[in-house]
């Protein structure tokens, strides 16, 4: 077994353990998951706030309730899938659409705008905050 296999095996194992913990413990009812440090110190939501709670809902099949916690996941998850597909394709010499280059051109701005937008305290921006 190569070093790369070992690394991916370890990453996969940690990922599964993490998913299992998020599945079995509801973050809204337990103190066991750490709160977002950014929210803790600033009372502002960061782009990732709500992801743990959303993942818990996704794993229980509640897609809409999950998206209410962090709607950006509806974009981020498919994008991550596309990026993985691109990497796999490149490694195998396929002609793939340059996903990473396209994403690179706007993602930083998108995150900064989302970060600001979900802290604006009136409708419709409040829909972007975890709720």
């Amino acid at each position: 077994m190569s070093r790369a296999h070992l690394q991916w095996g370890l990453v996969g194992l940690l990922g599964l353990v993490g998913l299992f913990l998020v599945y079995s413990i509801n973050p809204t009812e337990s103190q066991r998951f750490p709160k977002c440090p950014f929210y803790r110190f600033t009372d502002l939501h960061c782009p990732g706030c709500g992801t743990t709670r959303a993942t818990h809902q996704f794993l229980h099949g509640n897609v809409l309730r999950g998206l209410a916690y962090n709607p950006i996941l509806s974009i981020a998850v498919p994008l991550l899938g596309l990026l993985c597909w691109e990497q796999l394709g490149r490694a195998r010499g396929w002609h793939v659409w340059p996903v990473a280059r396209w994403i690179s051109s706007w993602i930083v701005w998108a995150i900064v705008i989302y970060w600001v937008a979900r802290n604006v305290p009136f409708m419709p921006f409040t829909l972007l905050a975890p709720h």
Partner: peptide, 23 residues
């Protein structure tokens, strides 16, 4: 992107900025 979403500190943004420069 994963560390930005899951770790939520601004460090992930720095990583994305550098990632975007590679290609």
């Amino acid at each position: 992107i994963l560390t930005t979403l899951l770790c939520c500190l601004p460090f992930g943004i720095v990583a994305i900025v550098y990632s975007s420069k590679v290609e």
